[in-house]
Write a protein that binds this DNA or RNA. Structure first.
Lengths: 175, 175
DNA sequence: CCATAATAGTTTCAACTGTAACTAACCGCA
DNA sequence: TGCGGTTAGTTACAGTTGAAACTATTATGG
């Protein structure tokens, strides 16, 4: 029983700390030097890979919600970093792609991001990196399933069993 | 060279995805069932451990900024979940502690959080869990150092060497 | 075909968040 | 004692965020 946790021991909390720190570090760079939000940078990164996507496809690929994508895209278009043209077969859709300037910006920022990743990982050996990759994949997939479950549990409208699954009577947790 | 990354391969992005998923799952529960924000829940969790802390100590222990803590605390006091009394020796400070109701609430939420952590980790073997713990610790410490560095780099007001450390000329990155 | 539903993108609004400024209390040293 | 500097907590404000409503267009099925 690894019950009786403290906040500092609690995996979700530690993950959140780490992730925030990492995000802040990189965001620092592209925000202050290039005036990009995180969402905007993600849009650019994804469009560099896929050349041309619709907003909905961006939503799928970046795991951000459509309002966020909309706003990011609007800002990028205003700055001339993105091009937009209507899809010929469906006038609701519009294809988005990087402009020359967008590509140029990407090639300024991407190396920095990669550099950061390298530096971050430099504290791990090759084996550890492989383990990390593997573990994150597993956790992500599993967490995605759990999210569904927990979402439904919460959504249940009636009494049923408010606190079934009597669980360790213990101490803490965060996040 | 692990250059030429795609967003889905980029560690900071993957970390962010995982962390958000995990946070959302748990937050789901204490937000919808108990009307607690993440910060509020963290405050409760920490105060359950330490019985009595000042706001400043909470800031240190939760890694959230003082305005966030202030607002969380105010909300909790209004709901009668927290007690506040002025420190005798320093009238600026005030000791915060859980009320009976606060403790009761904690004992409703904590098991759920622990249960979630258990479920999440159930997709890993014992070895993997140990590795994960270890790697996260290392990364967190290292990331904390890097954050300082990158912060300074950005803050540098002059030209100096805008892009020293010529790095892989490559492809992508997110976040 | 027309009516209904679904989808893509956009707008609105209210809540949340962080930065910076502010107030009150303490500290230290002359 | 009293004045600059520091610290604890609070407030104000401006920017960001997400849920839900809305518009325009396309798909469906009777």
């Amino acid at each position: 029983m690894s019950s009786s946790l403290q906040l500092e021991q609690f995996l979700p909390y530690r993950l959140s700390l780490l992730s925030n720190m990492v995000s802040r570090s990189i965001a620092q760079h592209y925000q202050e030097k290039h005036g990009l939000s995180t969402t905007q940078w993600r849009v650019i990164a994804v469009l560099r890979q896929f050349s041309s996507l619709t907003a909905t496809q961006l939503v799928e690929r970046t795991a951000m919600d459509k309002v966020a994508i909309h706003r990011a895209v609007r800002g990028l278009i205003e700055r001339g970093l993105l091009l937009r043209r209507e899809a010929s077969n469906d006038r609701r859709r519009q294809w988005l792609s990087l402009s020359e300037e967008g590509i140029a910006l990407h090639s300024q920022v991407a190396p920095k991001a990669i550099e950061y990743e390298q530096q971050l990982l430099s504290c791990l050996g090759d084996t550890e990196r492989a383990q990390l990759e593997q573990i994150i994949s597993q956790l992500t997939e599993h967490a995605s399933q759990l999210e569904q479950q927990w979402l439904q549990e919460t959504a249940e409208p009636d009494q049923g069993s408010p606190s079934d699954l009597p669980q360790s009577s213990v101490n803490i947790a965060g996040e």
